[in-house]
Amino acid sequence: MLKKILLSICIILTSIFCNAQKKLDKSFLKCVYDFVYLKDTLTSKKADDIIHLQIGHKYTKCYSYYSQQVDSLMSTPDYEKKAWAMIKNAVDKQGKGTSNYPHKRMRTYVYKNHLEGKIKVTDGFSLQDYVYEDELNAQNWEVLDSTKVILGNSCQLAKCTFRGRQWMTWFAPEIPISDGPWKFGGLPGLILEVHDLGKQYHFVITGIEKKEEPIYFSKTNLGSKRFEKAKRREFLKAKKSYLMNKGGYIEMETGIDLGSKSSQKMMRYDLIERDY
């Protein structure tokens, strides 16, 4: 029920949100992936997300469906009032303790520029978003003999070691698009499934649709309302530091002394990239 409410609101907000963004390209294909990842290595707690991949002739854009909803909401007047109303509705319908309310999940937006061979990534933590450049098709894949069928497409197995993790992926040579979710790409076919060996991070496709729609560069509505430029490894170090000491950051940014009353839960974070 909540998904239907959020979807209706997003449709209403689309025209407002799109006018505030820079158009990069127009898509001809849209892919949807389920994304499951390990949120806490101490308790083995997992979280889930829905990832959209817009594929155009010049650019592709990969982002969280849920984070895009929140960003759309934040770009409108009185968004705080609207957000609290949606949260109250979710709690009333599903009870206290539910996490099924409008909140960001994967904050990373990945823009692949296939003409220039570059990736631009926006990401953030706490009250600030950042932007950095990365290398396109940075994985060195080894194609293996194993095959399987995903969504009716015959797929082939490939593996690589990428930034501290070993990855296994299934790509579809019958779909000659050298792309995939997140930063993955560079294979002779669309990536339909990819995970690390321990399956701490696991993307699997659930839908492919021929769809023409604008590919926009999404703006930020947090902090200074502009992206701070960063280097990839410096950003990852800062993000890990924040995740391991959220209470300290909250005190620093808000001036609120949590003191001994803070019951912050200890969690162990293992970022998708480990080479920082």
Rank of each mutant, 00 (worst) to 15 (best):
R232D: 14
I87V: 15
Y33C: 02
E253I: 08
R274Y: 00
Q166M: 08
K26M: 07
G207V: 04
M74K: 02
L197C: 12
L144E: 15
E212C: 02
C155M: 11
K26C: 01
G223N: 02
D179W: 02
I55L: 13
D196H: 00
M267P: 03
C62M: 04
M266L: 12
S154V: 08
L53N: 07
H103F: 05
K82F: 05
H195W: 01
I215K: 06
L7F: 11
A172D: 15
Y111V: 01
K211W: 12
R105H: 12
K210C: 03
I87N: 12
Y65C: 04
G164M: 02
T220N: 00
I87R: 10
D270P: 00
K61G: 03
I5E: 15
H114D: 04
G198V: 01
F28D: 13
V91M: 04
L192W: 06
G247V: 11
Y33G: 06
K229W: 07
L243C: 07
E193R: 06
I191T: 14
V121F: 05
K120W: 08
S224Q: 13
K45F: 09
E228I: 09
V143K: 14
T108P: 00
P77Q: 02
F171V: 13
K199Y: 07
Y59L: 00
E209H: 10
T254F: 07
Y130I: 01
E253D: 10
W84S: 05
Q156T: 11
I16E: 06
I215N: 12
A20T: 08
M266T: 13
M74R: 07
R226F: 07
S75V: 01
K39F: 02
Y276R: 03
Y101E: 15
K61E: 14
K219E: 15
H103I: 05
W167S: 13
T41H: 00
T60R: 00
F235E: 06
K265Q: 11
L222A: 11
N100G: 02
Y276M: 05
F217D: 14
D275R: 06
V204H: 11
H114A: 07
A90K: 09
N19H: 12
G124T: 11
K239H: 14
K3Q: 15
R233G: 03
Y201F: 15
W84N: 10
I150F: 02
H52T: 06
E273T: 05
R232Q: 14
L151Y: 02
K104E: 15
Y216T: 01
Q68W: 08
I11S: 02
G56F: 06
T147H: 03
C160G: 05
N19M: 08
F217R: 14
R165Q: 14
K237P: 07
T206P: 00
K199V: 01
V32Y: 09
T98M: 06
L151E: 06
S146E: 13
Y33I: 07
D196N: 09
S72G: 04
G255A: 02
S15N: 12
L222N: 10
Y132N: 05
S8F: 07
A47D: 14
H202D: 12
H57I: 05
T108L: 13
K112D: 14
Q54H: 09
H195V: 03
K265N: 09
K93N: 10
F125K: 01
L222G: 04
R274I: 11
Y242G: 00
T43N: 11
L236M: 10
Y37D: 08
L243M: 15
S64Y: 07
T122C: 05
N100I: 10
V204E: 09
